[in-house]
């Protein structure tokens, strides 16, 4: 078919795509291209708007990156980010799997439905709300401290303690998303053939052997997929959660890469530097996700994309 005929047939489809194309162009593609200010000494006052400022700012190559790598605060933020990622991989990642297995084996459908309804709810709360709830319950003026004081005990404030911050942020993440995280595992569990369990039981496999040899292999593709996505995002541990608590806990413990970018660029007007930090993070993230995907292929799983 000639282009003219094709356009006559499809023009309405193409018109429908215009708003989406424009929005993505302005709010996704232009910012992605805008990363090039990482190689500039971007001066917001060099022009009347960001575009003219960009055009009249000096190109300085990798100068911003050099400043970045020389900044000890950057390495602190990177270390905090990686610590939190590893900690949550160990102490958060397995929990939705365990909870899903537990829920899957509940015999009462109504009880199961009730628990699911309750534990999915916090996923829809904003981080401001989640942290507000934690402060109200566990903070220095919270219900827990109130109870301790009434009992004549010395209250302590977990919300401002940098030493336990790692546990705190993981607890918050668990509270918000452990229920939501079970959905995908429950779907995978529902797809496991019940006859496998029956046959295994007949052959004398106990509860734990069935869990190990039937349930977990049934979940394996989902687990690998989620692990890849998590590894690809290893440098993002959640943005709002940390900005909201950085002042209460202090920079030493609560500064992560995302908050670093915010505080050392937008909050201070040092845009080129922040763009360089953001670009560094994105580049590492891309490498990580490619590596994780390759690892998944090596394990015989599909991963998130394949070469087909």
């Amino acid at each position: 078919m000639r282009l003219r005929d094709r356009l006559r047939r499809d023009w309405q489809l193409l018109v429908m795509l215009v708003p989406g194309v424009v929005l993505l162009l302005v709010f996704s593609y232009v910012p992605i291209l805008g990363n090039v200010i990482a190689f500039q000494d971007y001066n917001p006052y060099a022009g009347t708007n960001p575009l003219t400022a960009f055009l009249s700012s000096d190109w300085i190559g990798f100068g911003q990156f050099q400043l970045l790598f020389e900044d000890p605060a950057f390495w602190d933020a990177l270390r905090n980010t990686l610590t939190i990622t590893v900690f949550q991989l160990v102490f958060f990642f397995p929990l939705p799997i365990a909870l899903a297995v537990m829920l899957h084996h509940l015999l009462s459908r109504r009880l199961r439905g009730f628990i699911q309804t309750v534990v999915y709810l916090p996923h829809f709360f904003s981080w401001v709300l989640v942290i507000t709830f934690f402060v109200q319950m566990l903070g220095g003026a919270g219900l827990f401290a109130q109870t301790l004081r009434d009992a004549g005990l010395e209250p302590w404030n977990i919300m401002t303690n940098p030493d336990t911050f790692l546990i705190l942020v993981t607890a918050e993440a668990v509270w918000k998303d452990v229920g939501w995280g079970t959905i995908v595992f429950l779907a995978a569990l529902a797809a496991v053939d019940p006859h496998l369990y029956e046959a295994a039981a007949v052959d004398g496999a106990g509860r734990w052997r069935r869990l190990w040899h039937i349930t977990l292999p049934g979940l394996r593709p989902v687990i690998v997929l989620l692990l890849i996505l998590r590894l690809g995002d290893a440098l993002s541990v959640g943005f709002e959660q940390f900005i909201l608590q950085r002042d209460a806990v202090g920079r030493q413990a609560a500064e992560v890469l995302d908050t670093y970018v915010y505080y050392f660029s937008i909050a201070t007007g040092n845009f080129g530097f922040g763009a360089a930090a953001g670009l560094f993070k994105a580049a590492i993230g891309l490498v990580l996700i490619l590596a994780a995907n390759r690892m998944a292929h090596a394990l015989g799983e599909r991963g998130i994309y394949s070469k087909s």
Partner: peptide, 8 residues
């Protein structure tokens, strides 16, 4: 990315 999005 955050910074260019902010500028846009």
């Amino acid at each position: 990315p955050l910074v260019p999005k902010y500028l846009v």
